[in-house]
Design a binder for these strands. Structure first.
Lengths: 163, 163
DNA sequence: TTCCTTGCAAATCCTTTGCAAGGGT
DNA sequence: ACCCTTGCAAAGGATTTGCAAGGAA
């Protein structure tokens, strides 16, 4: 599984981007937490354990750099909160299911048939190279729980008219 | 087309949420701009024309309120920028295509076969009631333009390993 | 009266920037 | 020598909060 990390190193080298200890600390922290999503500040705290002199501004600069290099994806779940994840960290494209009741975040793997994306390209001329989807709703636990209001959900659906 | 506005009014009434002039100004401004996406501040400026005493904080509070009521959807395109839109404003579910080259935002209508969403429900127990997708890539104009670097796009794809 | 809503200003939180210092090439 | 990168502190921007006043129920 050093595979993913290797391809990051290679990509950075290919682009002549210097791998400073700060940048490496950020990369490693992202890698260690590849099953989650980190905010810049969370990442800062984790990376600081690897390289204690690290400054928060450097984390932001590094994230911006890695983003431009295509190593990361940034995901917005809630207002003002940006989280980052290494691309392909889960071995394949994935999406996020956010429970509106308990806030739980779970992931599902690529549900898009490639055909769908090709179709968009054909119809609009837009070439999709990346995407990020959030699905909101109610998780299994909450739906089983006592504070789950079925009626409320029906109303939501109604206001929306369709799902 | 007062239809959409009507259902908002009804929903607010049903929930015993008082429709103050400030709130109505916000709602109307959203409605008038239903083909676009507004940031809170843009919305503030527009709604202020309808009700000049309006304060910015009230706009934020109202957006939060409407969001909880399910009248709105919030969309994050870029770090730190949240935009709002009335739900079903375009008559049907839509998605966003963001060009990484020129920043142009265009919309496409629901490309999800309902089957896909049902399948998620079956497999995970998660009930999707809403979703929001951003697709990133390159628009037709940019791909035709001279500063479009085909090789760069290939590299992106490679780093990502798949689209 | 009591509760809700508001405008304003202050506070807070997240992110970016200016700058001088340190390190690589 | 030159350019890149960094940490720190300050600046900037967006959003939230405290509070006293006004209005509805």
């Amino acid at each position: 599984m050093g595979d993913m990390l290797d391809s990051c190193y290679q990509e950075l080298e290919r682009r002549h981007i210097r791998l400073t200890p700060q940048r490496e600390a950020v990369l490693l922290a992202l890698y260690r937490d590849r099953d989650g999503h980190l905010t810049p500040y969370e990442l800062f705290k984790k990376a600081k354990k690897i390289y204690p002199e690290l400054g928060l501004a450097t984390v932001y600069r590094t994230l911006e750099l890695f983003l431009g290099t295509g190593l990361l994806r940034d995901v917005q779940f809630d207002k003002g909160i940006t989280q980052y994840e290494l691309k392909d960290a889960k071995g394949s494209r994935h999406h996020h299911l956010v429970c509106k009741c308990c806030g739980h975040l779970q992931e599902i793997n690529g549900i898009f048939p490639k055909k769908l994306l090709d179709q968009v390209n054909e119809e609009t001329g837009f070439l999709i190279t990346d995407y990020c989807c959030q699905f909101y709703g109610y998780c299994e636990q909450c739906r089983a729980g006592s504070n789950y209001d079925d009626r409320q959900v029906e109303i939501e659906k109604h206001v929306r008219k369709e799902v």
